[in-house]
Amino acid sequence: MSQINSTEITKSPRGSVGIERSFSKRAWNRFKKNKLALFGLGVILLLIILALCAPIISPYNPFITVRNEFGLANTSQPPSSNHLLGTDNLGRDVLSRMIFAGRISLSVGLVSVSIACSIGVVLGALAGYFGKWVDSLIMRVTDVVICFPVLFLVITVSTMLKPNIFNVMAIIGLVYWTRVARMVRGEILRVRELDFIQASRALGASDFRIIGRHVIPNIMAPLLVQATLLTAQAILIEASLSFLGVGVQQPTPSWGNMLNAATSITVLGFRPWIWIPPGLAILITVLSINFIGDGLRDALDPKLEE
């Protein structure tokens, strides 16, 4: 009789899963089952390694025109054993430029989303936790900013400032915080009324302690999902800006500004090696991040726990 009792206790209400395993471990187990998400994670890790080791890996200097034995620039060469992806209009190695451009895309994605999340979490937390006029004010500002199509707003502001990578990061961050703020506010309204928050309030914890120590950790899961999906968006926006010529400027390579060459019909029709690889690079990067985001959403959703 006593033996039966003890097995029942170790089995716990969750059955075979067991309570000793942490939430993150269980989430990782669910994430692992999603093949697309694992594929995405692999691609992004590979891209990070390529970006970190860019100067070692790239076969040529991405800024310098390659010259042949007669001292002439090797412009618009099709792919060959010397240049795996050919050379561009100025005779620069496309593959090397692609590798260096990966640094730009990934860092723009990470930095701009960090900015967006910082602003969004602070404003969303203030609105959700304090309610009343603080909430109305912050949410009305959010309503206004959300009315401007993102690309429109980003293009407009980037023409007012100097077009460089740091401004691009800042502008994207300053536009995307609204999504984070709305999500955080909604989550906080939900978490705020939970018993343990009431308990710590009763114990005399200050508002900022409650938000920082209890509320924010409880909304990390949806925040992580949102941040991942926004990173994909931010990379797309940077690529569009650079394609239009108001983002990252030549000679710094970015996948977006490499595609700008394809606005000439000669390049578009007859030199596909110049514009197809960077386009595919954007597609695969954004696709991989979206796969990861989707996998995270399923893995971190406690409702889906078996």
Partner: peptide, 22 residues
């Protein structure tokens, strides 16, 4: 659908021109 939401609009546009027009 994943590819659709991940493809940059200009790359899609250029690709369509390349294939169907050129």
């Amino acid at each position: 659908a994943f590819v659709g939401i991940s493809i940059p609009g200009f790359f899609l546009g250029l690709g369509l021109i390349y294939i169907f027009a050129l």
